[in-house]
């Protein structure tokens, strides 16, 4: 099944939705950074997550989904390039083709590189007295880090722009215009929510 073109698309959709759900959960947890309590709530939450026995299995599921998502994307992009070796001299976008939809592989690659840096900084970063909250605050007090995160979150929003309704269509659920709009709204909410964190800490120092 997963060796066919539709099977690979199914793989993209399923792993994509797993990663999408993670993003929602991740954002929900991160919103505690905005609590005006010197980071108590967020640090308690971070401690709870680190000491949770379900953390490692969940991380493996996410890593698996990520690896498969990247693998299927690479395989399908290769297929696509082979199927259309020559483009047109004049090209006019029609239908639902957008800048976001045609740059999925590039926005995805950017997020992949970002992930390595992000995990190194926050998962394996040195936390001191103030816990993870202080690490987040210190990181985003630096203009370079704050700006970099905002840029990458914009790219993430771009990636999600063509994500949800596309996944549903692949799963066999005809995603009509309303779903496409919902998908775009979700991408703005998620990317905006994440981008608000560096902006907030940079301005709050």
């Amino acid at each position: 099944m997963f060796s066919t073109s539709i099977g690979k698309k199914l793989g993209m959709a399923l792993t994509g939705l797993v990663l999408y759900s993670f993003l929602i959960g991740h954002l929900a947890g991160n919103l505690q950074l905005f609590f005006d309590d010197g980071g108590t709530a967020f640090n308690t939450y971070a401690e709870f997550m680190i000491s949770n026995p379900l953390l490692v299995p969940t991380e493996f599921v996410l890593l698996g989904a990520l690896v498969l998502h990247v693998w299927f994307a690479a395989s399908l992009t290769r297929l696509s390039r082979q199927a259309k070796p020559q483009g047109y001299a004049v090209r006019q976008a029609v239908g639902g083709r957008s800048l976001a939809s045609r740059t999925m592989i590039w926005s995805g690659s950017t997020i992949l590189i970002f992930l390595v840096i992000h995990i190194r900084t926050f998962k394996f970063g040195q936390t001191g007295e103030g816990g993870l909250f202080a690490l987040v605050a210190d990181t985003f007090h630096q203009p370079g880090w704050a700006a970099g995160y905002v840029v990458v979150m914009t790219v993430l929003g771009f990636h999600l722009w063509h994500a949800m309704h596309s996944a549903f269509q692949t799963l066999g659920w005809h995603a009509r215009a309303g779903w496409r709009r919902a998908s775009i709204l979700m991408s703005i909410l998620i990317a905006g929510g994440f981008a608000a964190i560096p902006i907030y800490f940079f301005l709050a120092q």
Binding site: S5, L79, A93, G95, A175
Partner: peptide
Amino acid sequence: LKAMDDAGFGHCTNEYECEA
């Protein structure tokens, strides 16, 4: 599906240009 893949056609990225 097999014939479609064998013929060398690509996959669908749900951009709906075909419909247009």
